[in-house]
Write a protein that binds this DNA or RNA. Structure first.
Lengths: 247, 247
DNA sequence: GCGTTCGCTTGATCCACGTCAACCACGGTA
DNA sequence: TACCGTGGTTGACGTGGATCAAGCGAACGC
């Protein structure tokens, strides 16, 4: 129950609750590996928290960059828009993941970040993060790892877009979501999609009809059960086999 | 004429020549923006230089990561291999660009880096880079920008793979190469491709035949002149128009 | 309650690119 | 000079996924 405007005697309680040092995502998020003492120094830095309503932008392409954002709760997508009107979803982000790393390069955001459900984020002023990471080696190193992980993730998506066919892409997508939900303590076999078929398609380089057909196919094969956005995975190995099966 | 094994009285000369502080790529590479004094500190760190023959690996996926590499001269590709045998080229890198950033995340390289022509690289021990970037703020910030730029670049490739058709992809590819050659003082309109049609196709998510056909088409249209790997761009705007033209 | 909208599914058709195959140009080697 | 291997081009054909179109159920506003 974090509040942007805590009241009276609740203040200290709320502050404790919303601090990195007390956040149950800290092992997934930026604070990973920090000592208690280091955590409290990070708490000072990550003081701004904000709620973003479903459908609202956290930031837009072109805006000046001055902070990265950690997702405290909720679900986001990032997308890029080309001059000619085409756009593509470049990623879906969930609690504990960072948003805005792309903005460091030009000091302007290069994509839009949009909440797919009511969400809460922690703003991390970037210049202050640089200062602190000079002092806390663990923080510096972990931040580098996070950026590098993003690069590796993107290579995975390039692989997917470049070499996989429609059903393989969707299988890979579902398995990836499942694995990330698991890491957050949710069921690996049952979850709600926060995004539409069109957004999935955009991310996977497919049209929404193709995504829909692939879902139906998976259901027929008994790999999953689909009800709108509610997904149950019935046969993980089936999906995995599908993914690794050379054309 | 930098040598790995400089002789006698040439030593001091060679050392000067291969130092970051005297490298003509320093404005493109890691040393960007550093003062003279800072540059000499970076020189200490970047002491190992190595030649990589055409076709040889700089590193392989799975190997332990302990350094990133700046390309001093030459041309590389990076590729990823899936278990099922599929592979994809994830990038082409030229002088002044960094290789190995993907390895930070897991402390193992996640792709292969292969020289496409005889090349020279500077090895930058990563842990020492972290130490130095705590002391030199400019270096720290620029390194972050470089990593971020890599992320932005990858988003561009995802865009290309997800939304563009064959000819648009190839046009984007040629324009990107041209722009990077220009930044290095080479002709923007005339260059040699270091990679095969198959490697281009792998990078662009196309088959080599499709790449070849697109080259022929561009030639017919008068946009470029192709002779094997020798490319002359005759109509930049034609290529640009092609790229931005919604399907 | 009812209409409207949005997201999704499914079918029919089309086409861009993959696949298969033949052939050619170039460079290295015997 | 002849031979061979590698990389590139081009043609004929097949197909996976895009496109176009119709219909349906759930959510929402009135």
């Amino acid at each position: 129950m974090a509040r942007t405007q805590p009241l009276n005697q609740e203040i200290s309680l709320t502050v404790i609750k919303t601090a990195c040092s007390n956040c149950n995502l800290r092992e997934l998020c930026l604070p990973f590996g920090l000592s208690i003492e280091e955590l409290t120094r990070l708490d000072d830095l990550v003081s701004t928290r904000r709620r973003i309503k479903r459908g609202d932008h956290l930031y837009r392409a072109g805006e000046a960059f001055d902070a990265i954002y950690a997702i405290r709760s909720g679900f986001f997508k990032t997308d890029v828009l080309l001059e000619d009107g085409r756009d593509q979803v470049t990623g879906f982000q969930m609690a504990g993941e960072l948003l805005g790393l792309d903005g460091i390069s030009t000091e302007h955001h290069t994509c839009n970040a949009i909440a797919l459900e009511d969400s809460e984020i922690c703003a991390i002023p970037f210049s202050r993060l640089e200062v602190l990471s000079r002092e806390i080696h663990t923080l510096q190193h972990h931040f580098h790892k996070v950026m590098s992980r993003e690069i590796v993730r993107d290579h995975g998506v390039m692989m997917l877009l470049g070499t996989m066919r429609a059903e393989e892409r969707l299988a890979a997508f579902l398995l990836n979501l499942s694995q990330r939900f698991t890491a957050r303590g949710f069921s690996h076999a049952e979850f709600y999609l926060r995004m539409t078929r069109e957004e999935i398609g955009s991310y996977l380089g497919l049209k929404l009809e193709t995504v829909s057909r692939a879902f139906s196919k998976f259901q027929e094969e008994g790999y999953i059960a689909v009800q709108q956005k509610h997904i149950r995975i019935l046969n993980v190995n089936g999906l995995k086999a599908l993914m690794n099966h050379q054309r």
